[in-house]
Design a protein around this nucleic acid. Structure first.
Lengths: 219, 219
DNA sequence: ACAAAAGTGTTGCCGATACACCCATGC
DNA sequence: GCATGGGTGTATCGGCAACACTTTTGT
């Protein structure tokens, strides 16, 4: 058994929302330009090598910060890819993660010369097997947003139901009924009214909500 | 970066059904007695080291065969466990798999001196973090059996609906309504009648079914 | 007043549950 | 014929999609 010839990497599929010229927000993911062989000058997932004294989760958070400057609001292990021929320069097993980042976090992070964002539904040809990894992450995100309460991690601390709905619509790729969405959220979900409303709209101001946390459970 | 100090292992949680003295079948999983340190003489999940020229699925199938003599009818990656202190003798990252094996396969395989089966709901204290891995596998199996069509992998090629129902009941740990189970299977599922019935019962002979495969799609 | 989005009410459909009931076979 | 599990019918309940409708603000 030759352990030294197999290296362990961590890669992260990052999702964020961006709106182009005032339209509905859509899903975007950042990639890093490879500056060395193999796959020189191709776009690849943010990631890096696992170091000996850190957890997988920590390694994902660290490498994602180092390569893109982002800090995720949600981070979850996705799948481990270990095909023998994934890399032409020796065996690499990659633990893939999915990260969600807030829109304001994207604006705050330094853009970075070698980082570029692409629409999740219009990806370029990526290095290694990274296209397959992103496809898998996107499929999982779409199913998970329907039963887990993760969509709010794209938004700020407080948000309106319309904002939350537009997140769901961006992830799922189709429109949702506003009335029914409201009901399904306010009943089966852990939303809490803040008592405030969002001002400055050219119409009726919507209520602001927040997600129930451990300490805000006082109902 | 010191890659050589981190070793990559594959471990598999194996599930099979067994009935004790004529009762309803229950879920059982096999463990292997450790014959060396660390955790000498404790029970551990079947597994082994990943070798450099095989992919993860193959490694899971191989190590599970080598340690228990079993051949799974279903094998799926579960999660990758990479805590820094999982093993006292150096860093080990384990890719965990879930395997389902048929009852007849269990009977056929050589019992093995160092292999013992335990009821999935009454486990001993296992080596390393293997209790947590089994718990996670069991939780996943319970949710997955409700939406994926995997229960039949516990059974033979053909089976009656009562047999399939007893599999679901064993996995879920509670009884199901026979009439409604029949409907939900025959409608939303890919069951095909074989045209045969199971003889030798002390009552009305039940129809035998088989799962629809790619080539048996002729409806 | 009007537009536009927030928010509510109502209806109909569909799937799941509960359970009554009939059917076929061995003994 | 009777016990036993196989198999069918059916009423009810609850959730969800569809969509009409009312409310509240800025301009």
């Amino acid at each position: 058994m030759d352990h030294a010839t197999t290296r362990l990497a961590v890669s992260t599929v990052i999702f964020a929302l961006r709106q182009e010229h005032g339209g509905a927000p859509t899903l975007w993911t950042p990639f890093v330009l490879r500056t060395r062989q193999p796959h020189l000058d191709q776009w690849a997932l943010p990631g890096g090598w696992l170091s000996a004294d850190e957890d997988l989760d920590s390694a994902a958070a660290r490498t994602l910060g180092e390569t893109t400057g982002l800090h995720p609001s949600y981070l979850e292990q996705l799948y481990t890819f270990g095909g023998v021929d994934r890399s032409p320069t020796g065996r690499v097993v990659s633990v893939a993660y999915t990260a969600l980042v807030r829109t304001d976090e994207v604006d705050r992070a330094a853009p970075g010369e070698n980082v570029r964002w692409f629409r999740a539904d219009a990806l370029p040809r990526l290095a290694f097997d990274h296209n397959a990894i992103v496809d898998y992450a996107l499929a999982r995100l779409r199913t998970k947003v329907e039963y887990a309460h993760i969509a709010h991690t794209f938004l700020g601390e407080t948000f309106t139901l319309a904002q939350l709905r537009s997140v769901h619509e961006a992830v799922l790729g189709h429109a949702l009924d506003a009335a029914n969405f409201r009901r399904s959220m306010t009943t089966s979900s852990d939303l809490v009214e803040t008592g405030e409303v969002l001002a400055g709209t050219p119409h009726r101001p919507p209520k602001l909500f927040r997600y129930r946390t451990a300490e805000s459970t006082r109902s």
